[in-house]
Design a protein around this nucleic acid. Structure first.
Lengths: 212, 212
DNA sequence: GCATAACTTGAGGGCAGGGTCAACTTTCTG
DNA sequence: CAGAAAGTTGACCCTGCCCTCAAGTTATGC
């Protein structure tokens, strides 16, 4: 994943072990899991890991994009099969949140950005474009308030991210309640006086996600 | 703050320096600021700090309750002076969020719990009882959906906590937009189908706040 | 099968932060 | 003012994690 040169057979095998170990460790403990632990799970020394991946982000970028891509595609397929535009949007958002709730690595991937994980960033940015379609359809149908934008969906994912982390041990489904309340806030009929601030720009959102 | 015995004069002076330094450091950098830095700001050695406060929580508990109490009382006074029950609730919530946005220490105090900071915990728990009054008034007036409870307000504070941390450098007021959307989700007219999960119990909320 | 390039190893250095304690200094009390 | 009690110091240890590199091992091409 770091270069195109052909690897020696043992190196190739070790690379695969590292990626498998990383995927497992990320899934169980999130993307900040110590790299040493990943090397250990792979039965290799930390040096080998660093030898293959120059940084944590490089490893993340080798392992996560495929996962995220598949998961998002699945959510999108489900959502787009639904007639009712409000339903479609909520199903999509809910499915993404289910990913967050069920997998610490995906929770991180959805709510943060990793500066040197370029492929992952690309996937996540693309995801927003799909979500925009669903949102606009729901707005056109009058179900969703007209004064909100895709960037506002980030608030939902951030909230879910935090709630899941805090409550996974004590009330692992409570994020669904919070999400329901939040989604109700997006309904057209919920709108109160004009929103007090403009939505985040894409750039602001990107920068903010680097700060998490 | 640790015991009732009378302190030697120099020790008393050092204690005050420590608490002032802690208040300042907490305000600027949040409650997880290195204790070493606090000692340094006070012009004392780390040993002295540990000598006076057995743990970070003890220091937090010596410094924060007064601040939180004053701030919450102020917010409550403002809110209770407002006729319209919906206004009153939103003003209260907004003022608490303003505290979160303007002061990392208060942001931590509002959204987390510190097991050995008992006075602080007591203040924060009491706060919820006041908020309950405002919420119930707004529900009785038909402004707020009947199926939500004070514990649900925690979702707002958690969300604000996260959003503030992520966006303070890039769009420091954007939490107001997120909050407006969230508050709209609490309006009676926003309610969709029944909420999917029961509210958190007080105990669950408490445990969850320890996990943050 | 040998030379060489590729790869792995793990001890170890670095840094940040928590926390301790024996030796020293200051205040207090009679 | 001396002795005792109280308090302070800062070097030091510990843990967790990141990251490197000289020495050793293994695959590969000829």
């Amino acid at each position: 994943m770091t270069e195109g040169v052909r690897l020696r057979r043992d190196a190739q095998r070790n690379l695969e072990r590292l990626m498998a170990a990383a995927a497992e460790a990320f899934r169980e403990r999130g993307l900040q899991v110590p790299l040493e632990e990943i090397a250990q799970r792979a039965g290799l020394s930390p040096g080998t890991l660093y030898n293959r991946f120059r940084s944590r982000d490089a490893l993340i970028d080798a392992v996560m994009p495929a996962l995220v891509e598949a998961a998002v595609r699945d959510a999108l397929a489900h959502a787009e099969a639904i007639e009712d535009p409000w339903e479609a949007l909520t199903v999509y958002v809910t499915m993404v949140c289910e990913l967050q709730a069920g997998n610490p690595a995906l929770n991180d991937a959805v709510s943060r950005r990793f500066p040197d994980a370029e492929a992952l960033t690309a996937i996540c940015d693309a995801q927003m474009d799909h979500a925009r379609g669903l949102l606009q359809r729901a707005q056109a149908a009058g179900a969703v308030r007209p004064d909100c934008s895709v960037e506002d969906l980030a608030y939902l994912f951030w909230a879910t991210s935090t709630i899941v982390r805090a409550t996974v041990g004590v009330a692992p489904q409570t994020w669904r309640r919070a999400l329901a309340l939040n989604l109700d806030g997006l309904r057209a009929r919920a709108a109160g006086p004009a929103l007090p601030e403009p939505p985040l720009t894409r750039t602001q959102l990107h920068t903010a996600m680097l700060e998490m």
